[in-house]
Computed example of a mutant assay.
Amino acid sequence: MAGKVSLATPDDIPDLVEIFWEAFSGPGEVVFPHSEGGRKWLQRSFENFLGQKSYYRPESKVAVVRNLNSRPVALAIAHVVHPGQSIAGKAWKTRWTRCEDIPGMSEDKLAEFFEPLARAHYLVVGKEGHVFIELIMTKSNSRGRGYASALMEWATKLGDSLDIPCYLDAGMRGMGICDRCGFKAQDIEIRYGGPPPCTPMLRTKK
């Protein structure tokens, strides 16, 4: 059914890559190159998210909203972080995937993107259990239809069902949705040593 949130399947991965690439076009291509190597890294990452659970990394879930042709046009990536699991430092390499064997992918560039966000994340939640809403994105030709709000509701309900808070890094475009869903900006500038790259936001458990 078009507009309804459902979980992604491995068959959706090509569309998930295209949605991701559109969101990270332009300057974002320095980190996430629109190349065969970049596609391989993203494909492997989505396979990681949709694969078997691992004791060593958060439990990842990918939700999508589909169009009338059943093709994904919006996606959310959320991780259930269990108490004691780390989301700091180089944890992105187990949450996403390795890249050292993929031509054209730079671990240094990925680290420059992920690790400052992880530092802010850790200052807010430490090693407490929570749902980490890492990304919500909608294709440009499908925006304004409430898909991002529906995906946010799906993610926060996941947190509520587990009786744990939700965390996300917000950009300016998503602040309105975050406010409506009960997220509060966290002031960590002094502990972070300056303003973090995005606004860390926390929604307490209900």
Rank of each mutant, 00 (worst) to 15 (best):
5 V>K: 04
192 Y>A: 04
21 W>T: 11
165 P>M: 10
90 K>I: 07
131 V>M: 07
106 S>E: 02
121 H>E: 09
181 C>H: 15
128 E>N: 10
47 E>V: 03
44 R>W: 11
156 T>V: 14
35 S>K: 08
73 V>M: 02
34 H>T: 06
76 A>E: 10
23 A>H: 05
160 D>E: 03
174 G>E: 09
94 T>W: 13
155 A>R: 02
130 H>L: 07
143 R>C: 09
36 E>W: 12
105 M>C: 10
113 F>N: 04
57 R>H: 06
174 G>W: 09
76 A>W: 01
110 L>T: 08
36 E>M: 02
2 A>M: 12
173 R>M: 15
150 A>Y: 04
177 I>M: 05
18 E>Q: 11
5 V>T: 05
117 L>W: 10
47 E>I: 10
42 L>R: 13
149 S>G: 15
54 S>D: 14
154 W>S: 01
107 E>I: 06
158 L>K: 08
87 I>T: 14
84 G>H: 03
6 S>V: 13
54 S>E: 13
193 G>S: 13
42 L>N: 10
146 G>S: 08
15 D>K: 12
154 W>Y: 12
127 K>V: 07
98 R>S: 13
120 A>R: 05
38 G>N: 02
144 G>S: 13
153 E>L: 07
86 S>Q: 12
125 V>L: 00
93 K>C: 12
2 A>V: 13
196 P>Y: 06
143 R>D: 11
184 K>V: 04
199 T>G: 05
199 T>Q: 08
147 Y>E: 04
177 I>Y: 08
102 I>M: 01
27 P>A: 11
101 D>E: 06
14 P>W: 08
52 Q>A: 15
172 M>G: 15
60 S>I: 11
141 N>V: 11
107 E>N: 03
119 R>P: 00
136 I>S: 00
154 W>H: 02
189 E>L: 09
133 I>T: 02
28 G>E: 09
185 A>G: 03
96 W>L: 03
152 M>I: 10
83 P>T: 02
86 S>M: 10
119 R>V: 09
178 C>S: 02
25 S>D: 14
179 D>A: 15
155 A>N: 06
171 G>R: 05
131 V>I: 00
189 E>W: 05
6 S>F: 02
8 A>M: 12
40 K>Y: 10
206 K>I: 01
182 G>L: 08
42 L>S: 13
126 G>L: 03
197 P>W: 02
19 I>D: 07
139 K>F: 02
120 A>V: 10
70 S>W: 14
183 F>Y: 10
27 P>N: 08
194 G>F: 06
74 A>P: 03
52 Q>L: 14
164 I>E: 13
34 H>C: 04
172 M>D: 15
117 L>T: 09
102 I>W: 04
17 V>W: 06
151 L>I: 04
31 V>Y: 04
189 E>D: 15
154 W>F: 00
116 P>R: 06
148 A>S: 14
